[in-house]
């Protein structure tokens, strides 16, 4: 099949991430059941064996694509400079920060900070007033519904403790 010269080459590097992860994980999984009873092994060996086989077929397919010049080992389908421009990298960083600090700062404060910073990154600093307003409103609605009304055990911090004290004494 003749490849279209105008079509960008297939980014095989990106496509290989999941199969390589699958092979690594399957081999790790096998290592954890090697000396286990058959009940722990039977299903994993069947599923894992098939997964290794399908991954091997995919690797062969990739080699053929590379040899025919239909693809490169690039990762442009996963990471590009556009990810910085669109704010995706910034959003990822704030998401990691959200998960790391929510336990210390509590749900309401951390949600406000996360929403405000992420939206400002994605909006490239525009509409700051509106963003802070909407972030504060969403965090407060979240607190009112989940913590105040439903008493859900969301991570609690300074804000929740203060509000609880205010409610108890108010």
């Amino acid at each position: 099949m003749a490849s279209d010269p105008h079509k960008p080459p297939r980014q095989i590097g990106g496509e290989l991430v999941i199969p390589i992860f699958a092979v690594g994980f399957t081999l790790y999984f096998f290592s954890t059941i090697w000396n286990s009873p058959w009940t722990a092994q039977v299903s994993a060996f069947m599923v894992g064996g098939f997964l290794l086989l399908v991954c091997a077929i995919f690797f062969v397919r990739c080699i053929l694509w590379l040899r025919r010049g239909q693809g490169t080992l690039g990762f442009a389908n996963l990471f590009t400079v556009d990810d910085l421009r669109t704010g995706r990298i910034g959003l990822l960083a704030t998401t990691v920060g959200y998960v790391m600090f929510i336990d210390r700062l509590g749900f309401t404060l951390m949600t406000f900070l996360f929403l405000a910073i992420s939206m400002l990154i994605l909006a490239k600093g525009r509409n700051a007033g509106f963003i802070i307003l909407i972030s504060g409103a969403m965090a407060l609605i979240g607190w009112a519904v989940f913590i105040w009304a439903f008493d859900t055990r969301f991570p609690r911090g300074w804000f929740e403790t203060t509000m609880q004290a205010v409610m108890n004494n108010g």
């Binding site: 199969p19 699958a22 994993a44 599923v47 997964l51 399908v54 991954c55 077929i57 995919f58």
Partner: peptide, 15 residues
């Protein structure tokens, strides 16, 4: 091939 890789990876993760 890709669909089966995704499905069986899910089955492995489910194990």
């Amino acid at each position: 091939v890709k669909g089966l890789i995704a499905g069986f990876l899910g089955l492995m993760i489910g194990s």
